[in-house]
């Protein structure tokens, strides 16, 4: 009996070694991106062009992605987090520097976007390659809302009780209350956060649901009046339901950037650079924009994009609107806990 087990164990171990070898020889890139955040055809095209096999996984929120990378920074080679999350990963040593000079398409990205990222989250643009950007605003159904939509306060209007969708993400939900109360979107003041939480709790009975990706389907279905949403979702929703409109409220909002980073433990750094450069190509960025409809910072790609879209202020807002918008910064673990404590009191 013992012999049998010994043989079994030995063969299992041998198998594991072989499996390990196989993995190392094959040229594999492991990508971790938001759900529905790339034209999947592009992944195949990348594979064909480079001969690199892509293992592609998706997450739904920054907060869901972070603990997985924290537990094992070699789990993926490239990840696509949002600005404040990049800062957090950077500060906690989960990322390695990206040498922009190795990316021959890096100048396709507008200088203003590099500058904004450098100012807010990634000084000197050492870690993050911009992928998309946008704002947070209100998507509303013009057949159900007859008031003018220009303030976050409409989300507290009893008239629309049971017809309001909020984001189920701590920072985005708090943003709404912070802006309405005139606070910074990056406040860490406990009394300000308590006031926000109280305001959001007051809103709770009016809220139809706290949503993530399903916000699109619900708004397209046409039974919901108002939703807090990322500007990138607007174009897709509008195509499916022409009654929908998008507004960045006057009180200001959040301007966000998502971008690619290379993890500290990346096993295939060369492939990661190839991936980044591929996505930076103007034609690829334009095709990707048409598919995911999130505004691209890739100015070179604009020549491939429909002018009507480029002139739509909901997708590409003007400077005056952007001036009222703040970029989220990473606020540190203590503030994060504070936000989460207050968030739990909302529901």
């Amino acid at each position: 009996m013992k012999k049998t087990i010994a043989v079994l164990l030995a063969s299992v171990m041998a198998l594991m070694i072989f499996a390990g070898c196989g993995k190392q020889k094959e040229n594999v890139l492991r990508v971790y991106n938001w759900g529905e955040y790339i034209d999947e055809g592009l992944v195949e095209e990348f594979e064909e062009e480079t001969g690199i096999r892509v293992i592609y996984d998706e997450f739904t929120t920054n907060e869901e992605m972070y603990p997985r990378i924290e537990a094992d920074p070699s789990l993926y080679d490239v990840v696509c987090p949002s600005d404040y999350m990049v800062e957090k990963m950077m500060k906690n040593g989960l990322l390695q520097k990206v040498d922009l000079s190795k990316l021959k398409n890096k100048d396709n990205i507008g200088a203003q976007y590099y500058a904004a990222l450098s100012d807010f989250v990634d000084p000197g643009n050492q870690y993050m390659v911009p992928y998309t950007w946008g704002t947070v605003g209100i998507l509303y159904n013009t057949t159900l809302v007859d008031d003018p939509v220009n303030s976050w306060s409409i989300l507290w209007d009893e008239k629309y009780a049971g017809s309001i969708l909020m984001q189920d993400s701590v920072r985005d939900a708090f943003l709404v209350a912070e802006k309405l109360l005139g606070y910074s979107a990056n406040t860490t003041d406990p009394s300000e956060l308590a006031a926000c939480s109280e305001l959001l709790h007051k809103q709770y009975p009016l809220v139809k649901g706290y949503v993530i990706d399903e916000v699109r389907d619900k708004m397209i279905a046409g039974d919901t009046a108002l939703a807090v949403i990322y500007s990138g979702e607007y174009m897709y929703c509008k195509e499916e339901n022409p009654d929908l409109a998008y507004v960045i409220p006057d009180e200001g909002s959040n301007m966000w950037y998502d971008g690619w980073v290379i993890t500290k433990g990346a096993r295939n750094v060369d492939a990661a650079y190839q991936w980044l450069d591929f996505l930076l190509r103007a034609d690829i960025a334009a095709r990707n924009f048409e598919y995911i409809t999130y505004p691209t910072p890739n100015l070179a790609s604009y020549e491939y994009i429909d002018e009507e879209l480029l002139n739509d202020p909901a997708i590409f807002p003007g400077e005056d609107v952007l001036k009222r918008c703040e970029v989220f910064k990473y606020l540190g673990e203590e503030a994060e806990d504070l936000y989460y404590e207050q968030w739990k009191k909302v529901k």
């Binding site: 929120t61 907060e63 869901e64 603990p67 189920d168 709770y204 706290y210 949503v211 989460y340 529901k347």
Partner: peptide
Amino acid sequence: RKILLIGNIIESEFSI
């Protein structure tokens, strides 16, 4: 995601 059960609280402690 409006209704928080104790399972949801535990889940979000781990995830969020």
